[in-house]
């Protein structure tokens, strides 16, 4: 538990903002490009199929990995900045 209540709240807000940003990218790469927006991306060819197909079968997975590592890295910075990191 952080010592100061306002610091703790600021930390939690910063975390929520980061999560929201990451989840937008998460949804866009899978539900967006992979499913719902696929008809709009059909003009972009990727080796015998289209960009939407690639996102559904591979692109979304690569995006997910990048997102988790980005989040873990950012959170480590936040933990230190707000002084709530583990000893």
């Amino acid at each position: 538990m952080a010592d100061d209540k306002s610091i703790a709240q600021a930390y939690w807000k910063a975390n929520l903002r980061l999560i929201a940003g990451c989840l937008v990218v998460w949804a866009l790469s899978s539900y967006g490009f992979g499913i719902l927006l696929r008809p709009w991306l059909s003009g972009i060819q990727v080796g015998g199929a289209d960009l939407g197909f690639w996102f559904a079968q591979q692109g979304s997975i690569l995006t997910f990995i990048a997102l988790i590592f980005f989040y873990a890295w950012k959170m480590n910075q936040l933990d230190k900045r707000f002084g709530v990191n583990e000893e």
């Binding site: 998460w26 197909f53 559904a56 997975i61």
Partner: peptide, 12 residues
């Protein structure tokens, strides 16, 4: 492809 996205996206 739902299986591919669904079984990886949960880790996020």
């Amino acid at each position: 492809s739902t299986f591919l996205m669904g079984w990886t996206g949960g880790y996020v």
